[in-house]
Simulated assay, not measured.
Amino acid sequence: MTIATDTDQSVEKLVDLIKDIEFCMMTTIDEDGSLRSRPMASNKEIEENGDVWFFTYASSHKVVEVNQHHQVNLSFSAPDKQRYVSLSGTAELVRDRAKMEQLWKPALKAWFPQELEEPDIALLKITATKAEYWDAPAGWVAKAVGFVKAATTGDREDLTENKKIDRL
């Protein structure tokens, strides 16, 4: 019998928050030590342990960066749902054809016109090490209840769930 720990439940919540957010900003470290961010499409591919996969061109500048400095950060946001996630981890280039076939989606053809036959196609795997998320009810009813409670009690109402996960 497996007993779920607080960390297990936090990682499960993290995965649940990210799985509906298709795009994120990936931050890498450039050759001069500065931070660089760019939008990436995860295609909603996140594993149960928090690892995230991206299709990429193996010769792209971001791959040069992660080969020099493996540390990266992924920032996911869904403002309409009041969901925000920061995921830190290490990146590695993966050229596993079977994994690419498993993760391929037709929409990726916009970036990879030759699909899996692109000569330079590869995967970038982000192995999650730390994360933090913020999740708040986005509906007007939940917000209104919070405001009314704050106004009547004089206490600041914070409906946001915030959790740091230091080990994934």
Rank of each mutant, 00 (worst) to 15 (best):
A91G: 03
G33W: 04
I18D: 01
E47S: 11
L74V: 03
V15T: 07
D80F: 08
K105R: 14
Q102P: 04
T56V: 13
L87Y: 08
V63C: 12
E48A: 15
Y57V: 07
L17D: 02
M100H: 04
Y84N: 04
D51T: 05
S77P: 04
A78H: 10
F55M: 05
P79M: 05
T27A: 15
K19H: 13
L74G: 02
L87A: 00
R38G: 06
Q82C: 09
S88K: 12
L103W: 02
F23K: 04
K99N: 06
E48K: 12
K13H: 13
E101T: 07
H61N: 09
N43G: 15
N73I: 09
V52N: 00
E101H: 05
T27L: 09
Q82L: 14
W53D: 01
V94W: 01
S86A: 13
K19V: 10
F54Q: 02
M26V: 12
D16R: 10
H69E: 13
N49T: 09
E92I: 12
H69Y: 14
M100I: 07
S10I: 04
A78L: 14
S10M: 07
T56M: 08
R83L: 09
L14C: 03
E92S: 14
D30P: 01
E45D: 11
D96L: 11
A110D: 00
S60A: 15
R95S: 13
G50H: 02
K109L: 15
A41D: 15
V85L: 03
V72Y: 01
Q82S: 11
P79L: 05
T90P: 00
V72R: 00
M100A: 02
W104A: 06
K105S: 09
D16H: 14
V94A: 00
I21R: 01
R36S: 07
Q71V: 12
L35E: 04
V52L: 02
K44E: 15
I29D: 01
S88Y: 10
I18H: 01
I46V: 15
L93I: 14
D32W: 06
A41F: 08
V63R: 01
V94M: 02
V72K: 00
S86D: 05
H61S: 10
S42N: 04
K99I: 13
K19D: 10
F54W: 05
P106C: 06
L108H: 11
E48V: 10
V52S: 00
H70A: 15
Q71I: 10
S34N: 10
A58N: 02
D80H: 08
Y57G: 08
